[in-house]
């Protein structure tokens, strides 16, 4: 082995160690080893009860949130649309999660979104700012570039660097709480697409193709847990919703540590309304971000 090869190996090893220590081994492995399911889907009419039931099946929220940790809850509050429009995460669900996280002794709970509509309007009209604050979370702004930090994405990627919100990078635990919707550009928005709200400049993602770039958002840091609000799904006119948008009353919640698996299950729900599954799910599985094939997973189906 000459010096150059040695250096390459060394660099590769360092990268591997860095990746491992940074991201850790896939946490679902350890949960799986404990006998918990890979994905929990819960039917019901009350989102808070559905959340409790789902987390119970995964061994409780304490599996993911420990005393003294900084927790980021990332809802979808991109739109100045009231909760009846189902364009943003349900405010009741968000406040319920905030309270549960605080009860587990979290040091600090943050909530933010880099909104599409004017941020002050979106935070207010969605009702999420109020509900999160009342539950005890800190609602952080994400409306200027100064809150974001640039990170370099390792490997052969389309996006060489991404500007993540500093809280996304700092948080010990990230709870990704999207609402499932039709999306005109990407076909569907759920767990993976919701992470675009933690990124400052989204134009590079659109410019280079959403199907290729959305999975790459997971390369640097993955959410700890994905909780998809699929109680009432906008199946046309998404993601904002138009006056003639149609909805699917699916009354479901999908919870998984694997954002690809969660999105894969969510896509099945959209398919029942005649929509096509987004291409970024397969792409995410291809680059090893999770499992797209639901048959290979241990899925627990519950009713709350």
């Amino acid at each position: 082995m000459n010096r150059r090869a040695f250096m390459k190996t060394l660099a590769g090893g360092a990268l591997a160690i860095g990746l491992n220590s940074g991201l850790g081994p896939l946490p679902s492995k350890s949960l799986r080893a404990q006998g918990f399911p890979d994905l929990v889907a819960t039917k019901g009419t009350d989102l808070t009860a559905m959340f409790d039931r789902s987390l119970e099946a995964l061994g409780g929220l304490g599996q993911f949130v420990k005393n003294g940790q900084t927790v980021l809850i990332k809802p979808n509050m991109a739109w100045a649309v009231d909760p009846a429009g189902a364009a943003n995460t349900n405010p009741g669900l968000l406040s319920h999660i905030v309270k549960n996280v605080l009860n587990l002794g979290a040091k600090k709970v943050y909530v933010f979104d880099n909104t599409c509509d004017n941020w002050a309007d979106a935070y207010r009209v969605s009702g999420l700012e109020k509900s999160a604050q009342e539950a005890g979370a800190t609602v952080a702004p994400a409306n200027t570039e100064s809150y974001f930090q640039k990170v370099v994405i390792p490997g052969e990627t389309t996006l060489k660097e991404i500007q993540y919100h500093e809280l996304y990078l700092e948080a010990d635990v990230i709870l990704n709480v999207p609402i499932l919707k039709h999306h005109g550009g990407a076909r569907m928005t759920a767990a993976m697409k919701n992470l675009m709200g933690a990124v400052w400049d989204r134009r590079p993602l659109h410019r280079n193709g959403l199907d290729e770039t959305i999975p790459e958002l997971l390369l640097y840091k993955k959410p700890t847990l994905n909780i998809i609000d699929a109680s009432r799904i906008m199946v046309s006119g998404g993601p904002r919703g138009h006056g003639d948008s149609q909805y699917l009353a699916s009354q479901m919640m999908i919870v998984s540590q694997d954002p690809v698996a969660a999105d894969s299950a969510a896509a099945r729900l959209l398919e029942t309304a005649g929509l096509k599954a987004p291409k970024y799910i397969e792409e995410a599985a291809r680059i090893g971000m999770g499992a797209a094939d639901l048959n290979s997973l241990n899925i627990q189906r519950l009713t709350a």
């Binding site: 999306h183 005109g184 550009g185 959403l210 904002r240």
Partner: peptide
């Protein structure tokens, strides 16, 4: 348009349009 030119997914315009004048 990147969708036509590169045959990738985008839809940012339709996403932002408040009236539905641009749809995918």
């Amino acid at each position: 348009c990147v969708v036509i030119k590169n045959r990738t997914s985008c839809g940012a315009c339709a996403e932002m349009c408040p009236t539905g004048a641009v749809r995918m």
